[in-house]
Nucleic acid binder design. Structure first.
Lengths: 156, 156
DNA sequence: TCATATTCCATAGTTTCCCATTGCCAGCCC
DNA sequence: GGGCTGGCAATGGGAAACTATGGAATATGA
C-alpha cells in the first residue's frame, strides 16, 4: 500500500519570475491523492508560512472547521473561514513540475530567494527557510537539517 | 509474528554514491510488514542515529498524533508534526537491496563510510559504528560485537 | 507598444537502473 | 575430511533517466 503522506523536505529556489519547483517526492504524493496537476496554497493558521495540499483537501478542512466551530455563530467563526478559504489559491503545476508563487503568497510567506518545503503528513508547509530555523521550540534536529541545506547553498 | 521483529545487526559500507545495502534479514521483515520496496528513515529522538521502519509507519503515526492532539490547535501541535514528518524520508529499496542515504540523513547520522544496522524489535536503528561503540552505559557485550565487526573490516 | 505573464526548450548535476564482480556459506560428491 | 559447486549477499562501475533550474520565444493585457 503506497502511503500518501507528505514526508521529508526540500530547499528550492524562487527565480526572478516567481517560479518554484515542487519537490518530485511531493508531486508524487499529490498525484496519488488527486490528479497531481494542481495544488492548493494558503496562509498557515499559526505561523508565517504557507500550507500546501492536494485539491481534494479543502473539503476535509471544511469538515474539520465546521466540527471545530459547531454551535459557534460568532464573528470569530466567520473570520476563520475568511482566512482559510478566501486567502487560498489553486495553483497549476507546469510540465516541469513548477508553480508560480503569486506576489500575494510571496508576501504572506515573506519569501526571499529560497523556499523550504516541509512535509507535515497530511499536507506540507512552504517556509522562508530563515524563518524556519529561527522558530523557537522547534525540534533542533529539524533546524539542523535546514541549516545544512542552507549551508549547501552557500547561504550563511 | 516472530518473523516480523527486527533482530540482529549488520555492518555495511556506504559507497561514494551514498548507496547502502539493507541487511537481507531486515529486508525480509520489511517485506512481511508492508510491501518491502520502501522503508522510512528518520532522526532518532535521543541519539545521533537514524531509526528505520517499514512504510506503514507514517499512516500509523499520523493516526496516533491526530488522536493525541485532538482539539489542540496550538503551535505545539504543529511543531510536533514538523519534527515527525518533515524530518523523515521515504526511501526506495532497489533491486539489489540497497538504499540511497541522502546528504541530509548522512548529516543527521554523522556517517562516514560505514553504517551499523541494529535491530530494535519493532524498528531498527542505523548508526555510525564509531559513535555506537563510544556510547556510555551501553551493554559491553553489544559494544564488543560491533568492535569485532569493525576489526573484520580492518577499521581501527 | 511596452510590460508582464506563460509556454517551450536547453542543460548540468544527480539519481536511478542495470549488469559485473567478489566473497561467504551450505550442501554435495569423491 | 577435503575440495568442488551453486546460490545469495554485498559491492563496484557505467549508462540512461530525471530533477531542478536558466533562458529564449511566444502570448496576453494594460
Amino acid at each position: 500500500m503506497t502511503d500518501e503522506s507528505f514526508l521529508g523536505n526540500a530547499l528550492n529556489g524562487i527565480d526572478a519570475k516567481g517560479r518554484l519547483s515542487v519537490p518530485a517526492a511531493f508531486r508524487e504524493v499529490l498525484a496519488a491523492r488527486s490528479d497531481g496537476r494542481t495544488l492548493i496554497l494558503a496562509p498557515a493558521e499559526r505561523a508565517d508560512c504557507l500550507v500546501g495540499y492536494d485539491s481534494s483537501y479543502p473539503a476535509k478542512v471544511r469538515a474539520e472547521l465546521e466540527a471545530r466551530f459547531a454551535g459557534d455563530y460568532s464573528g470569530a467563526r466567520d473570520d476563520h473561514f475568511r482566512a482559510t478559504f478566501g486567502a487560498a489559491e489553486r495553483v497549476p503545476i507546469d510540465e516541469n513540475g513548477r508553480i508560480i508563487v503569486s506576489s500575494a503568497m510571496k508576501g504572506t510567506g515573506e519569501f526571499d530567494r529560497l523556499a523550504l518545503f516541509w512535509g507535515m503528513g497530511d499536507y506540507f508547509e512552504v517556509w522562508n527557510p530563515l524563518h524556519f530555523v529561527e522558530r523557537p521550540n522547534l525540534d533542533p534536529r529539524a533546524i539542523r537539517i535546514v541549516q545544512r541545506l542552507l549551508d549547501a547553498r552557500g547561504t550563511v
